[in-house]
Design a protein around this nucleic acid. Structure first.
Ligand SMILES: [Mn+2]
Ligand SMILES: [Mn+2]
Ligand SMILES: [Mn+2]
Ligand SMILES: [Mn+2]
Lengths: 232, 232
DNA sequence: ACAAGAAATTAGGTGGCCCTAAATATGAAG
DNA sequence: CTTCATATTTAGGGCCACCTAATTTCTTGT
């Protein structure tokens, strides 16, 4: 019997499960209360209360004072939300002229309101895309996701060519900045210089001036190493 | 000071205000508790409680034991929801292959989740439509709606030609039936026979057999009288 | 004028989801 | 092994939006 039967699937619970999933509630260490509270912008006691209910409903296992891990049911719900979110971001970007820095908030609300049918219709008119506008892989309706192994831009060696493959969609400011310096998913660049002590990394995108990037930013950019300047 | 400032604009309150508007909370008699309860599928005491809060927030005036009427603020919110709903139904129908009998439920949920920006983008790609797929007029962003003066099919005389202009979107079963007998918005037909005592009305659509329609159904179909068989 | 019936409100209660303040468990350092 | 900082949970409360049962108000027929 599927725990999804409980009509406990509200906007809040969906966002909790999605957040827990993306904090790694899948494998490895249990996800801690404070991380969830931080991700969702709620107080820790609110998380404690919600975790109790989600555990009762069978979406996760809770080890008190340790953290939580998703059950199969919980993971199923989380992946469904991730698919919804990413299909929505893709659709809004391709069909309604949204920029990659403004789709996230819209998708964050819509993901709870639309039917599976609508999501699949959108996927269909897009030709079943595999990646969202930020380069994140879109889970299949069956709940399979591609495992990406990108290297952070901050770890590429001086002189090396790379291609930007994936960027976090959480901070619009950051996305606008990246676009302003010519960095989008698929952009090729060469690493010109790396300052020590977690200093900035300087890169050059074809046809542009060298551009220094702060270390924190450079660590958040998922890249693929490339042999040459040539485009994909 | 605009009462919209109160972040009392939740899914429930939006649906209440929209329902009150469409029950005539605009002009004429005050809308009664039972009518609202019936429209929204909740118990009467739930409505009493909500009306108190909506009145406090300035969206309507409540005369106890009599009913409610929308204030300007309330009407503004209601018309905004009506616009959203109808733009959504139009978009889903034109761009995502929905049938006119399945859009309503989807729009009913989405109308609370999307931004004004998304609605206006949808309106734009559609070319700012004036009517939704059921023939209902779409309010402008400023909150103006066309006043339609349709005549119920049940009131057309025998022998008279008419054109179907508007159908309620609330009952998918009814919409499927209408499509199955060739009736869509814009369809021309001739009245063949009318039984007395609120009996059925028989019409003929070009290229089809005469079709009897129950009186209740015939009263719910908004039509325009036409001189000839010729299409619009 | 009054009693019955219908409609609405009040009373009292539930669950969801959030909060702050207080108590408690954990783990690292001394 | 104790102490202390930090993380977590518990306690207690608020608001929203629903419910059923009881009460009150309105209307209408006699
Ligand atoms: Mn996103
Ligand atoms: Mn969300
Ligand atoms: Mn509708
Ligand atoms: Mn609605």
């Amino acid at each position: 019997m599927n725990a999804v039967g409980s009509r406990l699937l509200t906007r809040s619970t969906e966002d909790y499960l999605k957040a827990i999933y993306s904090l790694g509630g899948d494998a490895g260490l249990p996800v801690q209360t404070a991380a969830i509270a931080d991700a969702l912008g709620v107080a820790a006691p609110s998380v404690s209360g919600m975790l109790r209910r989600l555990a009762e409903a069978g979406f996760l296992e809770h080890i008190p004072y340790r953290g939580v891990r998703l059950t199969d049911d919980g993971r199923r719900v989380a992946l469904r939300m991730v698919r919804r979110h990413r299909i929505l971001e893709s659709y809004l970007t391709s069909k309604l002229g949204y920029d990659w820095d403004s789709v996230h908030d819209e998708a964050e609300r819509m993901e709870h309101a639309v039917s599976d049918d609508l999501i699949e219709r959108m996927a269909q008119v897009l030709g079943s895309p595999s990646y969202d506008p930020h380069g994140a892989p879109i889970p299949t309706p069956a709940g399979e996701v591609e495992e990406l192994k990108h290297v952070p831009l901050a770890e590429l060696g001086v002189g090396q060519w790379g291609e930007l493959r994936m960027v976090s969609d959480k901070d619009p400011e950051r996305l606008r900045f990246l676009k302003s310096v010519g960095l989008e998913v698929g952009t090729r660049f060469q690493v010109i210089e790396r300052q020590p002590f977690n200093g900035p990394v300087t890169i050059r995108v074809a046809g542009r001036q060298p551009q220094p990037l702060g270390n924190e930013l450079a660590r958040s950019l998922g890249c693929a190493a490339r042999e040459t300047e040539g485009a994909a």
